[in-house]
Structures are given as structure tokens and as C-alpha cells.
């Protein structure tokens, strides 16, 4: 055996050892990589499982239900339904954030031959809570409400527990106007929403679907000559107030509550006068009704 052949064998054995070592290193690296990927998968999977578990627990928990509003003193409703004309005049435009939008060329919305005012809201909704005050004051100048009850918006929503009155169970009579007030839900938690209350008729549903984006509330349609989705003022004005405090504040025209609620009422009054042809005269020719000239001459 020659010396060179032995050297060749030694070199070959060394090369095989290096090859084996390289393969071993690659296998170790691949195993480490797999381990790291499994670790990453476990971390991501753990987060997803944790989030899913929270959703499952949430869905299986019983909901706490807020206490219902107590009975409203009769004087509150009486005072609200009979706000002195002088106070409404003194407030004038007051301080309102948004106004009803005038429609043109739409068929009149009527009920029993009278222009129909349709309100759609929900008792849990704080913006509905704000909107009702001004609407009630305005409509009371054209007719008479009976059966208005106390309510508060949901205590687990924004502007929690905003004092208001509910149209559920109330009736309205007027020689000039018809009114339909629909409260689609209470402020009592039911599952992930609130307990349903009034059901919209097909006609009411059609009006809501036509003018209110995504069924948002409060929605008001004034005879199809004005519509409004949302409140005329922010519920923040009413934060922390009882029903009695709200009504008491209405007696002071320079108070923020009066500026918001009675300003809203005067805006609705101006619009309603367009529906009634200026009737009754003492309301529609008054200072308060003239505070919103932009709401005249609709449709």
C-alpha cells in the first residue's frame, strides 16, 4: 500500500466526518427553528384562546339590570306641559346644536287627515332622552298629552341615567296634528341589548328606513316636511339632574337647561306651524315660533 493511498483514505474519512458534522448542525438548526416556530405558534394561539375565553365568559354572564326610574311627580308633567309663553319667548333660539332638515317634494305624512308627527326612539338612548323634552313642550302648544311616564336612559351608556319622559303608554290629542311616539326598547338590559318595547308598524318602519341611516334614533318626521335623526342638543346639559330639577330650570330662561330644552321646543314649534298652516294663531305668530325663520317655507 502506497503512502499516497493512505493519505487519500485519511482525507476521505475527514471529509465524511465534516459532512456528518454539517448535517448534524443543519439538523440541529432545523430542530431549533421548529422549536421556535412552535413557541411562536403557542404564543399566538394562547392570545387567541384568551380573547375567545373572555368573549365566552362575557356571553355566559347574567346581565345586571338598572333600577327603573321612580314615579315622576305630577307637578313635573304639569309644569312641562304648560311652560309660560313669556318664558319661551325669552329663550328664543336658545342654544340648540342641530335642527330638523326641511324636505321638498315629498308626499305629506298624515294620520286621520292631520299632519302626522312620528317619533321613534328608545328609553335606553340618552339622545332620545334629551330630544323628548323639547318635543313634548312644543307639541303641548298644539294639543294635549296624557299618560306621559318618567324614564331614564340606560345607566351603562353615555350620559347615564339622563332624566326624561317616555312616550310609551302616552296619548296625544290635537285639533291640528296627529302624533305617534314609538319607544322600541326599554332601558332594561336583556342579553347584549335592551328589552324590546313598542313595535313599529310597517308604515312607521318604512318611514324610518327611508330617512334614518342604519335605523339610528331618535328619529323625528314632521309630516314629511322636516326630518331629524339625532337630538337637537347634547344630553350633557341634563347630566345629574332629576326630573324636578330639569323642570325647575326651565323657569329660568338664561339657564343652560332652558336654553337647550326650550330652544329645541321653539325650533319644533316653528316647524310644526308650517304643518298646521299657522294654527293656532297665538302660537304661530308669537316671538318663540319666529325665532327660527330658516324653518319656514318648507316643502
Amino acid at each position: 500500500m502506497s503512502r499516497s493511498a493512505a493519505a487519500q483514505r485519511r482525507a476521505s474519512r475527514g471529509s465524511r466526518r465534516e459532512e456528518h458534522a454539517r448535517i448534524a448542525r443543519e439538523r440541529a438548526a432545523a430542530a431549533a427553528r421548529q422549536k421556535r416556530i412552535r413557541l411562536a405558534g403557542a404564543a399566538v394561539g394562547g392570545v387567541v384562546l384568551l380573547l375567545a375565553a373572555m368573549v365566552v365568559v362575557k356571553l355566559s354572564l347574567p346581565r345586571s339590570e338598572p333600577a327603573a326610574a321612580g314615579p315622576v311627580p305630577s307637578t313635573v308633567v304639569d309644569d312641562l306641559l304648560h311652560v309660560p309663553t313669556g318664558t319661551l319667548d325669552a329663550v328664543g333660539r336658545g342654544k340648540v346644536a342641530t335642527l330638523p332638515t326641511a324636505l321638498t317634494g315629498r308626499p305629506a305624512l298624515t294620520d286621520g287627515g292631520k299632519p302626522l308627527v312620528l317619533y321613534v326612539g328608545a328609553e335606553y338612548c340618552p339622545f332620545c332622552a334629551a330630544q323628548r323634552w323639547g318635543l313634548i313642550v312644543a307639541l303641548s302648544r298644539f294639543g294635549t298629552f296624557t299618560g306621559l311616564g318618567a324614564a331614564r336612559s340606560a345607566t351603562d351608556d353615555v350620559y347615564p341615567g339622563t332624566a326624561t319622559l317616555t312616550f310609551h303608554g302616552a296619548t296625544y290629542s290635537s285639533p291640528y296634528l296627529a302624533f305617534q311616539g314609538v319607544e322600541v326598547a326599554t332601558s332594561e338590559r336583556r342579553g347584549n341589548s335592551y328589552a324590546p318595547l313598542d313595535t313599529l308598524t310597517a308604515a312607521q318602519q318604512a318611514v324610518l328606513a327611508e330617512y334614518s341611516s342604519n335605523g339610528a334614533v331618535p328619529f323625528v318626521d314632521l309630516g314629511n316636511r322636516y326630518v331629524m335623526t339625532g337630538a337637537t342638543f347634547s344630553p350633557s346639559v341634563l347630566t345629574g339632574l332629576t326630573h324636578q330639577q330639569v323642570v325647575t330650570s326651565l323657569g329660568a330662561p338664561d339657564s343652560p337647561v332652558a336654553a337647550a330644552v326650550l330652544g329645541s321646543a321653539n325650533a319644533f314649534t316653528a316647524a310644526l306651524c308650517q304643518l298646521t298652516g299657522g294654527q293656532p294663531g297665538d302660537v304661530c305668530t308669537g316671538i318663540a315660533a319666529g325665532a327660527f325663520p330658516e324653518l319656514r317655507h318648507a316643502g
Binding site: A97, S193, A216, V217, G230
Partner: peptide
């Protein structure tokens, strides 16, 4: 400032309630 002083059609999905 909130542009629309309105409540969404469903109570569960309520961005204003979350973001305030």
C-alpha cells in the same frame, strides 16, 4: 365634538360609549 347626537340601532355595538 360628536357630530350626530344619535344612538346606534343596536346597543351592543356602541363606539361612543366605548370611546367616551
Amino acid at each position: 365634538d360628536p357630530g350626530t347626537l344619535a344612538c346606534p340601532a343596536t346597543a351592543t355595538v356602541n363606539c361612543a360609549r366605548v370611546t367616551t
